[in-house]
């Protein structure tokens, strides 16, 4: 299996604060890769580095074999231009904790926006595809609703449809259910489970241990900017080896 995401000694600083202290990991194509850990452990920051929303300060990060955010030539790194970074992000879908739907557009327009603007898909084609995707996440009847008219769970499902509209080869989920009322979490996890079954490569930062155990193929536990423990979700969650993992899991499980 080829690596969809490959991190080699990734470091990240915010000013003098070191948030990532050398992350090495590999996400294989087609797997669901879960990242868990306490807040402030750097897991969301790492996820945002994968599509270059954050710039890394040391190490290398590859998506599908391509260096993220830079071009390496004759042993030197060159920053990519705005346009080139945008092109790299096309194939990476991202779902945010706070949904970040475009509030001035209907659900359907949200899903159509990127294909039309970025890929130059015709409006008619993009609309058909958007309706298809909204049906898939169970929101066929809400396509003309504005985000403010939708519940949190519905908004997050639209956000997933919006990311899928670009036909990404990799999906990043940044705590997709953390901002939801408890009774709305299930509907979003169902959609994600469905995606995983379709073979989508997914990197999921989550606090939903049940989901990680059931759907995840790999899991890493991060704390204080490092990967403390990794393995299969069942193994890490049921039989943690490290003290920090044990104490974290005892609090959340």
């Amino acid at each position: 299996m080829t690596a969809m995401v490959k991190a080699e000694a990734v470091h990240k600083y915010f000013g003098h604060v070191q948030v990532l202290k050398g992350i090495d990991l590999e996400v294989r194509a087609g797997e669901v890769f879960c990242i868990v850990g306490p807040s402030g452990s750097g897991k969301s920051t790492f996820l945002r580095c994968i599509n270059h929303l954050e710039q890394i300060n040391a190490g290398r990060l590859y998506v599908d074999g391509t260096l993220v955010g830079y071009r390496e030539k004759h042993g030197k790194l060159y920053e990519l231009r705005d346009r080139e970074v945008a092109a790299q992000r096309r194939d990476i879908g991202m779902v945010f904790q706070r949904f970040n739907l475009f509030p001035h557009m209907t659900a359907r327009e949200n899903v159509m926006e990127a294909p039309v603007q970025v890929k130059g898909t015709s409006k008619r084609e993009a609309r058909d595809r958007a309706d298809q995707l909204l049906d898939r996440v169970g929101l066929g009847d809400k396509r003309d609703g504005y985000p403010a008219q939708l519940s949190g769970g519905q908004q997050q499902r639209v956000a997933i449809a919006r990311a899928l509209a670009m036909d990404p080869k990799l999906m990043l989920f940044d705590e997709p259910t953390s901002a939801l009322d408890p009774e709305l979490v299930g509907e979003v996890l169902d959609v994600m489970r469905d995606l995983a079954q379709d073979g989508m490569t997914m990197v999921v930062v989550t606090h939903e241990m049940g989901f990680a155990r059931e759907v995840g193929d790999s899991l890493v536990f991060m704390d204080d900017g490092v990967v403390v423990e990794s393995g299969s979700p069942r193994q890490v969650l049921s039989d943690p080896q490290h003290e920090r993992t044990k104490s974290f899991l005892s609090k959340v499980l």
């Binding site: 599509n51 929303l53 945008a86 992000r89 096309r90 991202m94 970040n100 475009f102 926006e113 603007q117």
Partner: peptide, 26 residues
């Protein structure tokens, strides 16, 4: 909200597209 710019960037939109389609209308 900055999340709007992040979302449009994550979808592969350029700064100019983000400004014209997402930020200015809001």
């Amino acid at each position: 909200d900055e999340g709007q710019t992040e979302a449009s960037h994550a979808l592969g939109m350029t700064n100019a597209q983000n400004m014209r389609r997402i930020v200015l209308p809001q």
